[in-house]
């Protein structure tokens, strides 16, 4: 069981690293940087919360995959908009650079809200239980 857990942990870490690599090399450097920041932030956060290590890593990997898919979709949208000449390249590039980080907030918040629910333990930190 221990070996299987270790394999799962290694696999999840590799998937996370792969997501970051794919995003940085094949999508966009800015997206890659955002994913690295995401990993740093959530790794430091998840380490403080209670829960199984495998669960935490699974959530982190899911977040990375989500971020990669999101980056790819948005990047492709801009790419095809440029190809189809919806607007000038400079305008689209500027929109992408300025608006994109803010749009990332949406999927990060959604991800955070669901993962916090998954990790919420039954331990009563405060004296008040909610029924």
């Amino acid at each position: 069981m221990n070996i299987i857990r270790r394999l799962v942990v290694i696999l999840l870490l590799e998937l996370t690293a792969l997501s970051v690599l794919i995003t940085y090399c094949w999508i966009d450097a800015q997206s890659g940087v955002i994913l690295v920041i995401f990993n740093l932030l959530f790794f430091s956060l998840f380490s403080q919360l209670n829960g199984d290590v495998c669960v935490k890593l699974f959530l982190l990997t899911t977040g990375n995959v989500l971020g990669t898919v999101w980056s790819y979709s948005f990047h492709m949208l801009i790419f095809y908009a440029i190809t189809y000449e919806v607007a000038s390249t400079t305008t689209l590039h500027t929109i992408y650079t300025i608006v994109y980080p803010f749009l990332n907030t949406f999927w990060v918040i959604a991800f955070w809200s669901l993962s916090a629910t998954a990790l919420n333990n039954s331990q009563n930190f405060g004296r008040h239980m909610y029924d």
């Binding site: 979709s73 492709m76 949208l77 095809y80 908009a81 190809t83 189809y84 919806v86």
Partner: peptide
């Protein structure tokens, strides 16, 4: 290309 853009959107 149109369909791809619409699909992605």
């Amino acid at each position: 290309v149109e369909n791809i853009v619409i699909s992605v959107f």
